[in-house]
Design a protein around this nucleic acid. Structure first.
Lengths: 200, 200, 200, 200
DNA sequence: AAATAACCGAGACGGTACGTCAAGTCTTGAG
DNA sequence: CTCAAGACTTGACGTACCGTCTCGGTTATTT
């Protein structure tokens, strides 16, 4: 991908002036900020350069194009930690997890989806990377679900949760166009998720 | 929106030379064709003009910008008719409906989502229009579900189906990035949809 | 030229509804007004149509293009009458004539020159027409010069005056870019015109 | 004006990639060529870009609009050198100078006048620049007139020549619309210029 | 009186060119 | 070799007029 963390291809090349790592931060910070401000389509490389104080060359030396830059910026942010389950009450745990997920997707992942669409057409490998990031965030909660065994769950319940909950939240935000408020989260938990987790 | 299909408000304006409806067709056809060929982002007004044989001004007279053009092009296409339920076997009916929905979304609605993202930032009313079209397609099947009563369903089952099935299919295509093949449809029907429809 | 006054080619055609002569006036008035307001280049047929209340078709039915329209508008204005010579004092007569000419050229003919330049490239016959109008205005004063014989003049003095005076005034306004004020007129009369008229 | 030739103000800006001077040449050459081929009105920025091989943005980076581009193109051409006076025969000197001037104006300055008219309305400072160029060319001959003193001349004779000769030549070409042939030059010299220069 | 024909307004149509913006590449000088 | 700055090509944007072409409707003359 050409990101600094990647190992092989783009040769960190021991000779010459070393890359200024403060530039990495500035670039990715500016990208994230602009991404949430104006969205993916309206985000211009020129604006990233301007805000970060870096030259366009410096950005293009690191990332081959806009989509890669956005991918790197979002990847760096890292998977936010989901709230740990209390373990006593299954509904409370699922509800907390769902609410946290709804907030995360609404606030952060929407911008990513724009990048995904562009990337899908231009460079399948890039689309793959975007998907990996999105999936990483979505599946981050799988591990913590049902561990302390509040209640016996069907086998594959965690996987099922990780499949259904994000899908419905994304659909709500993007296609339906209404916010993931408390009522929606409750509906999601009580009418869809819990029946599936218990009965499967 | 000013699209030809809209009633009343934008004054068909009896004065002056009437619009050439063959231009409408040519423009929308070219738009749909290019949309599926190159996707929303790569679709340029210049290309639409070129392929349709219409001048750019003729397009801009009808639609204020690219997003409105795409919205109109997709709206015209109309909601494809879902397969009618046989009524004997609930699983067979749900499966047929889901498979049909998966095919439709994979083939047609993906391009729309790109338009939706751009429209969300630029013009909320446009985003609203795009959502309306997407929802219209998604809810088209609601009416036909469970009518001949193959099996007693939970109240609100149809609504629930219209909420969950499209969400998971879109998520599969866009975020997961894998095709909605037979195995996935079966999984969707047997592990998620049928349990919800029967038990709620 | 296609102007209503012209005799031959475009057939006033006795059949059918006759042309509305009020449209002629409105069109030519609007043209003259816009010509002085924004100049020849910035004058658009659309603006003439808008201001005159006539449709573009109505204008193009009368004049084949912008240059012809402007030519007709200026021609209609007609040659302003130069002041009659008093006859007693040659210098006074020449001065009055020159001052009148300077005013006329500054105020009216400047717009024409733009049309002339366009016409020169596009349609030599049109350029010819523009020149005829300009020359008609310029030579209008020839007849009245020196008739009551204030002073014996060289043969061809009137022709010489009609050749030199307009040339210097046009040059002053267009190329030098300074106004034809009293000082310039006096210089023109005393240092150039009178010596030529008396001595040739 | 921001033209490359201007000193100081517009910051040559030592930072960044310097402007490619070969682009300057290509652009101005193409402009001059097209100017003489099709005239000012028909000269399009797109054509200049095409012929010069430069992108439109490269042209617009240097010149704010068409008139400024034309001004720069003409300015670069520089004042053609008038023929040096032989000094023996005043009439021969004046005739040579006049013939040279007639040729120059007919061939080159006519296109400039079109630019001047547009510029006059759009930007007075630009019109000023165009006038400066035209005047520079016209007054280029003043210095060489009468220096070797072929014959005693009236004071201010050179200035008078620079005022009258160009005016009559421009008028002949533009307004009268007839060529500055040998007969006209002779008439100009013998009937107008020499009497003025000798007697004033 | 009816038919015909040219007129008129309005405005759509295919074009050409405009001047702007952003993308991604290239070229300088400095470190 | 990196960095900031900015010039460069490319291609699309949305706008303004051009000159032509329907429309529905309006006068006139001719049959």
């Amino acid at each position: 991908m050409g990101t600094p963390g990647s190992s092989g291809v783009p040769r960190p090349s021991t000779k010459g002036r070393p890359r200024d790592s403060s530039r990495d931060l500035a670039i990715l910070d500016a990208t994230l900020a602009l991404l949430t401000e104006v969205g993916y389509e309206q985000l211009s490389m020129e604006a990233v350069a301007g805000r970060s104080g870096a030259a366009k060359t410096t950005i293009y030396r690191r990332y081959p194009d806009k989509a890669a830059l956005v991918a790197a910026a979002v990847e760096r942010r890292g998977p936010a930690k989901p709230p740990p389950p209390r373990g006593k009450n299954l509904r409370a745990d699922v509800h907390a997890l769902t609410a946290w997920l709804a907030r995360n997707i609404s606030e952060q992942d929407v911008g990513l989806l724009g990048a995904l669409f562009t990337g899908m057409r231009n460079d399948p490998r890039l689309a793959q990377a975007m998907r990996r990031i999105l999936r990483r965030d979505e599946t981050a909660m799988t591990d913590n679900l049902g561990h302390p065994t509040a209640e016996p769950l069907a086998p594959g319940a965690a996987t099922l949760f990780a499949e259904v909950a994000p899908a419905l939240i994304v659909h709500r935000v993007v296609v339906v166009g209404e916010p993931c408020d408390a009522a929606f989260v409750a509906h999601l938990v009580d009418d869809i998720l819990l029946p599936l987790l218990r009965r499967t």
